[in-house]
């Protein structure tokens, strides 16, 4: 079976580097599935889970916003921050979401609305990743 080279990197570390037969991620225009031999594509990366399938083996990673570059034989995820989904704490994520929501509703606080919205999106994506992972188990 043909494979595609997958690398997921964040500005502070390398998250994953290896082969995959199929990769799923959320691009800025929606969910995309990447198989070997995909046409060259450049798109934004939306915070959320990235699934890398290699045969029967499947790994899930959490990526915050960034970019995806696809070449026929390589796919590169440039994430601002990425982490292994296994290492994520759901309680932490929910807390972060609550904080972000509170910040958004709190009109008194002089807060950058876009920043709060981004935080909220990220926290929601984290929770989504964890829950997806739970379901698979």
């Amino acid at each position: 079976m043909s494979t595609i080279k997958v690398s997921i990197v964040s500005s502070s570390e390398e998250i994953y580097s290896g082969e995959g037969t199929m990769v799923f991620a959320t691009g800025s225009l929606g969910e995309i599935g990447i198989a070997p031999g995909h046409a060259p594509l450049l798109t934004g990366l939306v915070p959320g889970p990235v699934r890398v399938q290699n045969g029967d083996d499947e790994k899930t990673f959490f990526c915050s916003g960034g970019f995806i570059e696809i070449q026929p034989d390589i796919v590169t995820f440039l994430s601002d921050r990425a982490e292994r989904a296994e290492s994520m704490d759901e309680a932490e994520a929910i807390k972060a979401q609550e904080m972000a929501e509170k910040n958004m509703h709190d009109k008194e606080a002089e807060l950058d609305y876009t920043k709060a919205a981004a935080q909220l999106a990220e926290a929601a994506a984290r929770i989504k990743t964890i829950q997806k992972l739970r379901k698979n188990k």
């Binding site: 691009g27 800025s28 225009l29 046409a39 060259p40 594509l41 450049l42 798109t43 934004g44 970019f67 440039l78």
Partner: peptide
């Protein structure tokens, strides 16, 4: 060339 989603300008500038 790449397929750009959404716009080439926006993506390249960000990148």
């Amino acid at each position: 060339d790449y397929i750009y989603e959404p716009e080439a300008k926006e993506l390249l500038e960000g990148l």
